[in-house]
Amino acid sequence: MYTKKCLIYEEQSEVSSSSQARQKLEGLLNKNMRIRMTDGRTLVGLFLCTDRDCNVILGSAQEFLKSTDTFSQSEPRVLGLAMIPGHHVVSIEVEADSLDDTQGFGANH
């Protein structure tokens, strides 16, 4: 009997944490994201969606190549709609101008 109560509590806890994660993700929709990939490229665009495998869809995406010379700024390549496989994602950042719109993305609500 005790184990059933623990399992029910754990299931409720998982539902609560998953709904909080979902709310945070929904708060990031249509925000500018900067995604660094394993091959050194950086993609910047609007966060449209993700899935369970951490694949990310960016709209109005631009690609920036990794520069060997720190002083040279290459022109971005316009991609439009882009899908980034989750296993190629190194880091994801919210652009500073859209961070103000999220009203405390990192804060607990």
Rank of each mutant, 00 (worst) to 15 (best):
R36S: 15
T38M: 08
T38E: 14
T38D: 11
D39S: 07
D39R: 01
G40Y: 12
G40D: 05
G40A: 03
G40L: 11
R41F: 08
T42A: 11
T42Y: 05
L43Q: 06
L43M: 06
L43T: 05
V44Q: 10
V44Y: 03
V44H: 07
V44M: 15
G45C: 08
G45I: 00
G45R: 01
G45V: 03
G45N: 04
F47T: 08
L48A: 07
L48C: 09
L48Y: 04
C49A: 14
T50F: 03
T50R: 12
T50D: 08
D51L: 03
R52K: 07
R52V: 12
C54W: 06
C54N: 09
C54M: 04
N55A: 03
N55M: 04
V56R: 00
V56K: 05
I57Y: 07
G59M: 09
S60Y: 12
A61S: 03
A61T: 04
Q62Y: 06
Q62S: 09
E63K: 07
E63H: 04
F64S: 08
L65S: 08
L65K: 10
L65E: 13
K66W: 15
K66C: 08
S67W: 00
T68G: 12
T68L: 07
T68H: 09
D69F: 00
T70R: 08
T70C: 08
T70G: 03
T70H: 10
F71K: 06
S72V: 08
S72R: 11
Q73Y: 02
Q73N: 14
S74Q: 14
S74A: 15
E75L: 03
P76M: 07
P76N: 13
P76R: 10
P76C: 04
P76S: 12
R77L: 13
R77N: 12
R77Y: 09
V78T: 10
V78F: 14
G80S: 01
G80R: 03
G80V: 00
G80F: 02
